[in-house]
């Protein structure tokens, strides 16, 4: 009895399998035909595009098939993010700050804050009143992000929002930043600032496409920091702070070329010679962060030290 049952079951099983197989084949065939028809239709649609006249960036009028036109806005963000992450190939940016020349004009600060839409208390660059020992004279020190080659902020970022580019710049993508502020905790140079509220002029710039190399428009709840004016560098110009300085404090250039240019005098000098002749140093090199910003000690100062009222504390 059991035996016959088994047999019966097995034949049933077989016919069911066959049936399923057939169904499968029919289904597959149907799908293939459908897909073919669909793609043919797509192809037809592509061919039916309209020609549109456009003005190119260099002033020529061209005709372009409308199907090739994509929304620029969306792409611009992606393009900027992609090139922003890659950096400028073959470059190795460095900054040299000559402390002997700084008289705390704070033109670097204001130029920077204007370019990056920062509130007055938000700094990418700030001038600090420093005194190394009680018996030495105080001096003014412009302080930017040090663009470390071993950046603690980049290590701790959980979402790759802040990153190191191949030209040495540490950038922040505020379309990615989740606002955890681990990078603020990690940075020994207090280089980072946060958008605690809606950023300055947020409404005015609401429609501007985000430029990762300028970090504009700023976004509430994300980090902002010095970018060494990556947008200017792409245009072959000096950073905002460097060209704003009236006193020749900043040198900026490419370590691969071994040349840096003074932002005020526009004089270009050999980087290695500048660093050697003036006994250049870095901030807290013992932390192993390998900064890209060098300081020339405040010797033979051009200006006497004047204390800034608001920074006496």
């Amino acid at each position: 009895m059991d035996n016959t049952n088994d047999k019966l079951n097995s034949t049933k099983e077989e016919s069911r399998r066959k049936f399923l197989k057939n169904i499968g084949l029919v289904g597959l065939g149907g799908f293939a035909i459908g897909a073919a028809l669909f793609s043919a239709k797509k192809f037809e649609e592509v061919k039916k595009g309209k020609n549109i006249r456009l003005l190119t960036a260099d002033g020529n009028v061209v005709e372009v098939d409308s199907v090739h036109i994509k929304s620029v806005d969306k792409d611009l963000l992606t393009i900027q993010q992609e090139q922003g992450r890659e950096g400028i190939v073959g470059r190795s940016w460095v900054m040299v700050i000559d402390l002997a020349k700084c008289r705390n004009a704070r033109k670097c600060v204001s130029a920077c804050q204007e370019a990056h839409h920062l509130r007055p208390e938000q700094y990418h660059i700030n001038t600090l009143q420093m005194q190394d020992t009680p018996s030495t004279k105080p001096y003014h020190m412009p302080k930017t992000c040090q663009h470390c080659d071993n950046p603690p902020c980049v290590s701790v970022c959980p979402v790759d929002a802040t990153f190191k580019r191949n030209d040495g710049i540490v950038l922040i993508d505020n379309e990615r930043c989740i606002g955890c502020r681990f990078c603020i905790a990690a940075c020994p140079y207090s280089a980072r600032s946060f958008n605690w509220f809606e950023p300055k002029d947020a409404e005015t710039f609401a429609d501007v496409v985000y430029d990762v190399e300028l970090n504009v428009p700023q976004k509430k709840g994300t980090i902002t920091k010095c970018l060494l004016s990556a947008d200017k560098l792409r245009k072959g110009e000096l950073p905002y702070c460097v060209s704003a300085c009236p006193n020749g404090v900043f040198y900026f250039g490419d370590a691969n070329e071994d040349a840096v240019t003074n932002g005020t005098t526009k004089e270009t000098v050999r980087l290695s010679k500048l660093l050697t002749d003036n006994a250049a140093y870095q901030l807290y090199p013992e932390l192993g962060t390998k900064p890209r910003v060098f300081y020339l000690p405040p010797k033979n100062r051009l200006f006497p030290y004047t204390e800034n009222e608001e920074t006496k504390a």
């Binding site: 970022c157 959980p158 979402v159 606002g179 955890c180 709840g221």
Partner: peptide, 16 residues
């Protein structure tokens, strides 16, 4: 504590 809690999913999408 997050500035952008709307991007919480990024921790999984772009987790480093």
């Amino acid at each position: 504590d997050m500035g952008r809690p709307d991007r919480l999913a990024y921790v999984f999408l772009y987790g480093r």
